[in-house]
Amino acid sequence: MADPKFEIQMLHDRVMVKVEPDREERRSSAGIVIPATVSMANRLVWGQVCGTGASTRLVKVGDKVLFNPEDQYEVEVHGQVYLVMRERDLHAVATPMQSEQGTGLYL
């Protein structure tokens, strides 16, 4: 008998995020190549929201979010690794430019 398939429903203010893969190397603003093996302390990363609980207020599925990947819970679903965190652990949500308000910083 085959294993039954389950739908994942996040609870409360929990958010499931798929981390965007790191590029193999980075370049500084001066053009210096930084190899992928160099780890940067306290570096925030971007990810995509794949699930939200009923109590989340500011993010929705598909949003691009900025967060600290350290000290988050990790779960593997069908071979893909996701992070589970509280909505308050997110630092920013990237949205398309629509008006003059905001920080003026865009990806």
Rank of each mutant, 00 (worst) to 15 (best):
D22S: 11
R23M: 13
R23S: 14
R23N: 12
R23W: 12
E24F: 06
E24A: 10
E24H: 08
E24Y: 06
E24C: 05
E25D: 13
E25H: 12
R26K: 14
R26L: 13
R26V: 03
R26D: 11
R27S: 14
R27K: 15
R27W: 14
S28R: 15
S29H: 11
S29E: 09
S29A: 13
A30T: 09
A30P: 03
A30S: 13
G31Y: 03
I32T: 15
I32N: 15
I32P: 04
I32E: 15
I32K: 15
V33C: 06
V33D: 07
P35H: 10
A36W: 01
A36V: 02
A36R: 02
T37S: 08
T37E: 04
T37F: 05
T37A: 05
T37K: 03
V38S: 12
V38Q: 15
S39E: 10
S39L: 11
S39K: 13
A41G: 11
N42S: 15
R43P: 02
R43D: 05
L44C: 07
V45P: 00
V45G: 00
V45F: 01
W46H: 06
W46V: 02
G47L: 00
Q48T: 10
Q48Y: 03
V49K: 00
V49T: 03
C50G: 10
C50M: 14
C50I: 07
G51D: 08
G51T: 07
G51C: 08
T52E: 00
T52H: 00
T52A: 02
G53A: 08
A54Q: 06
